[in-house]
Computed example of a mutant assay.
Amino acid sequence: MRAFIFPGQGSQAVGMGKALADASPVARAVFEEVDDSLGRKLFALMSEGPADDLLLTENAQPAIMTNAIATLRVMEQEGGIRLADKADFVAGHSLGEYTALCAAGALGLATTARLLRLRGRAMQAAVPVGKGAMAALLGADLAKAQAIAAAAVAAVLEDTGETLVCTVANDNDPSQVVLSGHRPAIERAIALAKDMDAKRAVLLPVSAPFHCPLMQPAADAMEAALAEADLRAPLIPVYCNVDAVAIADPDQVRAALVRQVTGMVRWRESVLAMAGAGTDRFVEFGGKVLAPMVKRISPDVAATSVVTMDDIGEMLKTL
Rank of each mutant, 00 (worst) to 15 (best):
A152F: 14
V253S: 02
P205N: 15
T167Q: 03
T112L: 05
F210E: 00
A218R: 04
L137F: 04
A143Q: 13
K131L: 08
Q252D: 14
A145F: 03
P217D: 01
N170I: 01
T163M: 12
V177G: 06
A227L: 02
C166P: 03
V238W: 03
A248K: 05
L157C: 06
P209Q: 13
A233G: 02
A155R: 15
A208G: 14
C240S: 04
A185M: 04
D159K: 15
A152V: 07
N241Q: 15
A150C: 11
R200D: 05
D220S: 11
R200P: 09
D171Q: 07
D159M: 06
A136K: 05
I236A: 05
A189W: 01
D171F: 04
V156S: 05
D243N: 14
A147W: 11
V178H: 00
G181F: 04
Q216K: 08
G130M: 15
E223W: 07
L116C: 09
K194T: 12
A125V: 10
P217Q: 07
Q124G: 05
P217I: 05
L109E: 13
L203D: 04
D173H: 15
A189Q: 00
K199T: 14
G181R: 07
A143W: 06
P250F: 01
D159F: 12
R117A: 13
E162I: 01
V156P: 07
E223Q: 09
A151M: 06
K199R: 09
K131H: 06
A110F: 07
A155M: 07
Q124V: 13
T163I: 08
A191Q: 12
A140Q: 03
R119I: 09
R188G: 01
E187Y: 12
A136S: 10
T163L: 11
I247A: 08
C240N: 06
F210A: 03
G181D: 10
V178M: 14
V127L: 08
K194W: 12
K194D: 00
P234A: 10
K194A: 15
L142Q: 09
Y239N: 00
P184R: 03
E158Q: 14
V238E: 07
E187P: 08
D220C: 13
V168K: 01
A193M: 14
R200K: 11
G161W: 08
V178W: 01
L157V: 04
T163C: 01
G132M: 04
K144N: 11
V168S: 07
Q176E: 07
C240R: 00
I148M: 12
V165Q: 02
V253Q: 01
I190V: 05
A224S: 14
A229K: 04
L142C: 05
G139V: 02
P213G: 06
P250C: 09
V153C: 13
A154N: 14
V165A: 10
S180P: 07
I148L: 08
P213F: 03
A149Y: 02
K199Y: 04
A136Q: 00
S175A: 11
L157G: 14
T111E: 14
M215N: 05
